[in-house]
Design a protein around this nucleic acid. Structure first.
Lengths: 251, 251
DNA sequence: TAGCTTTGTGTCAATTATACACTATCCAAA
DNA sequence: TTTGGATAGTGTATAATTGACACAAAGCTA
């Protein structure tokens, strides 16, 4: 839960950065953790940007992405996967991004290639307003994001596509849920990632057949309707399953 | 068919390179175009490496990959897709790679992040021995490659995985075949990419159902057995299909 | 012309996908 | 305490897809 101190004995590489698409799920819809660049930028263009930073010379790319995530949220051991590299020569030199860059970079004119990652964090583990770092970070529903700084909107799009594709092959969605969850929440999660409605009964049948859920004998409380049974994700069964190999959730 | 001249008015970026996994198919098995680094390296480690180079400051990453491909083979308009970025701090500093790097790089000690691509070229379009460039390039069957320079073996592995995954979703394999081909050749291609045997009749049924093949009224000639019908890939039908959307070749 | 090699074809059973509607349970408000 | 509102939870029938499997036809060669 503690963020890294600044690296000692290592230099920032002025040409390579990582940017993180940090996905969360508020039990209704898919969200992304964005940085508000504040008034300075708003006059020129989008205020919001993906969290990211230059890499240090002694880090590999995964480490850099983990560091960015840790510095912002204090979270470690988070599901993380590379989306790809983005390297248009002028990707950070739009007029609207210049001012802000000057305020945060030693060499604001340098060409920077960025390596994008997406991560899945249980939203309950991190509330920006409760954190001492980055008071200017906030969860924003994916569906409401229309523009972002730099080429970050394009990166977001690529991350969404990758997540969509990946979830058809592995049940990584569980990384977005709290420990105990209902089938309806899981259902909503899949719908919002795949961005299409899924038949309730067919979804439940299919997900149960995977045999990676443990049903708790505990019910939802305080909801103004029939309470749902709570479930846990069963990591062991999942490991077993990946050994024997499976390929297609096929939603 | 002409390769690019050296870029004018632009500098090499000493920190970022692209490497290309150039796939071919010799009608029997999947192959990759590798560079032979020659005797210098052989004493220390693997002779073979993926073609690649530092990027220029005025190119984006796709352009750089296309340039590398063009410089080596003279081919343009080739199917090309990013695999991802590889950036271990010491990825190019193995003892066995040092000597060779000194001979080709202005700053052999610099840390270099590489962005890997894979490309699909119809092998009939390019025979290294006939080319004036890169006499030290050669097609090597994927199954015979056990080691490569730098982290290139790891990159190859990632490219194979990406190709395998991608071909389940889109019929990109046609980029590896000559204009006219037989169903058996297509069958072999899928088997060697997916790295597992596929039932002949089931394969044919499935591929035909896609309705993207035009059967020519022309037969194979000169083969010592029943000659096969030749087929063409039908781009229009394919475009149509991708519009209406399809997701799963599902082999 | 006999033999070798690869092509090309159909069916059946099992599995999987899809479409679809009503009752049960809890809370809240009257 | 009863009623209404909201979501949970459940099964079946039809269509489509998968997977397993074997033999005759065509051309070449010796």
């Amino acid at each position: 839960m503690q963020h890294n101190p600044k690296k000692i004995n290592s230099e920032l590489n002025p040409n390579v950065s990582v940017d993180c698409v940090i996905f969360g799920f508020d039990l209704e819809q898919l969200t992304v953790l964005l940085i508000d660049r504040g008034e300075i930028s708003s006059a020129f263009g989008p205020r919001m940007a993906l969290p990211g930073n230059l890499i240090y010379d002694n880090e590999n790319l995964d480490m850099a992405a983990n560091r960015v995530l840790d510095e912002l949220t204090g979270l470690n051991n988070i599901y993380l996967e590379q989306v790809g590299a983005f390297g248009d020569p002028d990707r950070i030199h739009k007029e609207s991004d210049r001012e802000w860059l000057k305020s945060i970079r030693a060499e604001p004119e340098a060409r920077v290639i960025t390596v994008a990652y997406f991560t899945l964090v249980p939203m309950s583990d991190y509330k920006p307003q409760a954190s001492s770092f980055a008071k200017n970070a906030d969860w924003v529903p994916v569906s409401e994001i229309k523009e972002l700084a730099f080429d970050h909107f394009e990166i977001l799009q690529a991350a969404k596509d990758k997540l969509k594709q990946k979830i058809k092959i592995q049940p990584i969605g569980f990384n977005l849920l709290p420990e105990k969850f209902t089938l309806s929440q899981l259902h909503r999660l899949y719908e919002s990632i795949l961005d299409k409605p899924l038949d309730k009964r067919n979804f439940r049948r299919k997900i149960q057949k995977l045999d990676i859920l443990t049903s708790l004998s505990e019910k939802q409380r305080g909801v103004p309707h029939k309470p749902s049974l709570l479930y846990e994700f069963n990591e062991e069964k999942y490991q077993e399953l990946t050994q024997t190999g499976f390929d297609n959730f096929g939603f």
